[in-house]
Amino acid sequence: MAEDLLKVSDLVIQFKTKKGTLTAVDHVNFTVKKGEILGLVGESGCGKSVTSMQILGLNPKENTQVPEGEILFEGRDLLKLTQKELRAVRGEEISMIFQDSLTGLDPVIPIGKILVEAIRAHHKEISKKDAWNKGVKVLESVGIPSPEKRMHEYAHQLSGGMRQRVMIGLALLNDTKLVIADEPTTALDVTIQAQILDLLKKRQEEKENSVILITHDMGVVAEMTDRIAVMYAGMIVELASTRDIFTDAKHPYTQGLLKAIPKLDQPDNEKLYIIEGTVPPLGQRGDGCPFANRCEYATERCRNERPEPHTDSNGHMVRCFRAEEQDKEV
């Protein structure tokens, strides 16, 4: 078994708003092993981005309560680091790829200068010229044609796919141990998405680093990840190997999610499965299971009591009373 690179325990993130304190992330636990790709899936507002932003300390300070819990990265608690210490971690040990590459790249600085700056931010000893040459190599390695020319261009002169390649190049610059990719292909077309996913996977295999891949697309996680954490309303409701999630999902939400996606071999007259209702808004999630209002198996207990994580002998974690009982029966 590979070592843990990142261990998130009992992470709670709350935002201060006019309506009171809202819990966006509620007792989240997961680990990322060395060399693995972990998928974090869920719908908008489920807390997947907030969780990942907290790893790098990027949630807005003004309205975020001091998070509870621990984020251990190679034994160091990232929540306890000072801003200065965190800055040394960002880009050097953990890097991030954002969804929107147009806002992720400074529009008034040429690509080359952005790369040189990023390289020299952590390695002052590298001369500007060497950094420039390294930048060209980076662009080449992510498959950008005529990289020398591109170094002088600005973000808006590149297409969406090209910009996302630059972002990946930036994230892989210093051979970081952990890359957090937040919806890296959501803004792209399918043929470009396929290129970018191939590139991400290839680079990950070469460098053997770990990746947290955040997405709402079940197709993308099926193809890319080793393990998957499914988030719903601020909680991880199920965490298991990718194969187990797709072949033996235990949480009713995961099951419903998989059935609700039209497959290419979907029979014509068969209706799509529907998860009734909508995600409860922040602040109205009650004490029970947050999925209880949409779950076809919900009981009185589900509405009043929150299920605790239950892990079976295969390491398949689920937060659901029903699944827990079924496991005990077996």
Binding site: V190, Q193, A194, Q195, A222, F246, L258
Partner: peptide, 23 residues
């Protein structure tokens, strides 16, 4: 190319061909 580029929500599904190059 378009068909083969879609990621299918199925762990046994392997993409058949190489993705299209270029934009």
């Amino acid at each position: 190319a378009l068909m083969s580029a879609i990621p299918e929500p199925d762990v046994n599904h392997k993409r058949k061909s190489r993705p299209l190059s270029g934009d």
